[in-house]
Amino acid sequence: MSLRDHAREAIRDEVAKHAWTLFAAHGYEATTVDQIADAAGMSRRTFFRYFAGKDELVLERLVESGNLIATALEQRPADEAAWPALRAAFSATIRLQEQHHEKSRPLQLMLRAEPALRATIETRRRLWVERLAPLTAARLPSTDAADRSGTRAAAVTASAVACLEAAQIAWAENPGTSLGELLDDAMGAVAPLR
C-alpha cells in the first residue's frame, strides 16, 4: 500500500470509530451522516469521499470482524475438527466484545432492531460464510467429496455463525452474562449434528 492508501485507511478507520460510538449512543437511524462527519472533524462532502453512506460503515466493520475470525481459524491446528476450530476462532471477536461491552451490547441490539440494517446483516452473514466455509471444508471428514464438501462446509459454517448470532443477542439482552458461555451453550446444542 502506498502512503496515500495508508492515510486513507487511517481516516476511514477514525470515521468508523466515531460512527460506531454515535450508533451505540443514539442508534443507527437517529445518527445522521452530518453528526458522524462533525464528530470526525470533516464536512459532509468529505465524508462521502470515503464512504457511500452509513450502511457501508456498518458493513465494513462487520466484514473486518469476519476477517479476524478467518485469520484465527487459519491459525488453528490443522488436525483440529471443524466445529471446535470454529468455536476457538470466534474467541477473537468474543474477547473484543466482552472487553468493550459498554459499546458492544447496544450495538448488538441496534444491529437486530434497526430495520434499515437487515439487508446489511444478511450481507454480512453471506460474506462470513463465503470466507469461512473453505477453511471449514479442510477440517471436515472426507466422504465422497466430489460435490458435497462445499455444501457440507457451508452448512457447518452457517450453523456456527447462527450460534454466534444467537449468543450475541442473548448476551446483549442480558447484562451480566458471559458471551463465551452463551456461545458454548449454543454450539453445544448443535454439536451432536456434526
Rank of each mutant, 00 (worst) to 15 (best):
I169L: 13
L22G: 02
A153D: 05
N174R: 10
L140Y: 01
A78V: 12
F23D: 03
N67V: 14
F51V: 09
T143I: 11
P134D: 01
E98Y: 07
L107T: 01
A7L: 15
T177P: 03
R126T: 04
L109I: 10
A30V: 08
L59G: 05
L57R: 11
A145N: 14
Y50C: 03
E173K: 10
I11A: 13
N67Y: 15
R95E: 08
W128L: 04
A138F: 02
A153F: 09
E80W: 08
L73D: 02
P192R: 11
L59K: 06
M110H: 00
T21R: 14
S65F: 09
H100T: 11
H18T: 09
A162G: 14
H6I: 15
A89V: 01
M1L: 09
A19F: 00
K17S: 13
G176T: 10
P141V: 04
E9T: 07
L86I: 06
M110V: 01
A153T: 05
P106A: 03
L3E: 11
A189W: 06
W83E: 10
P175Y: 03
V15H: 02
S65N: 14
A137K: 05
A186Y: 02
A167E: 02
I11H: 10
L193S: 09
A166D: 05
L59T: 09
M42K: 00
K103E: 11
L62A: 08
L86V: 10
S159H: 05
V15I: 15
A24M: 03
